[in-house]
């Protein structure tokens, strides 16, 4: 089992979610996060003076899947969330040891 953590643009979230649900992965955990990578931040104006906002709003999307599905999902997210400009985000794939469903106490693959 793998956990896919994708950090994407908020503007693209709806599109990515629709595409994943169409693929058959309706479950996900979503967090509004702030951060920056190589994108240098943007400048805004407050009472005539410019200030820099380093940490930009992004959406973090977490989804745990079977190993064989990882490529398909990573491919979907990276196609749909891409705009070509700096700040499109990143995708991390992590190992997951165990998964339990609290309601039924099912374990691992049946619990995803």
């Amino acid at each position: 089992m793998k956990k896919i953590e994708a950090i994407i643009r908020p503007e693209k979230f709806n599109i990515v979610r629709d595409a994943l649900t169409e693929l058959g992965y309706p479950g996900m955990t979503v967090t509004e996060v702030k951060g920056h990578g190589s994108q240098k931040g943007i400048s805004e104006v407050w009472r005539g003076r410019r200030y820099r906002v380093d940490l930009l709003s992004k959406i973090k999307l977490e989804i745990v899947v079977k190993e064989e599905d990882v490529d398909k999902i990573v491919d979907t997210i990276s196609t749909e969330a891409q705009t070509g400009s700096i700040g499109d985000g990143k995708i991390f794939v992590l190992n997951v040891e165990n998964v339990y469903r609290i309601r039924t106490k099912e374990k691992d693959n049946t619990a995803i």
Partner: peptide, 22 residues
Amino acid sequence: YHGTSCYPVEEGLFGAVGEQVI
């Protein structure tokens, strides 16, 4: 259109422009 958000970011998440050349 107005350069800033109606509810600006919380303190600590922004900085002076001078530190980094844009």
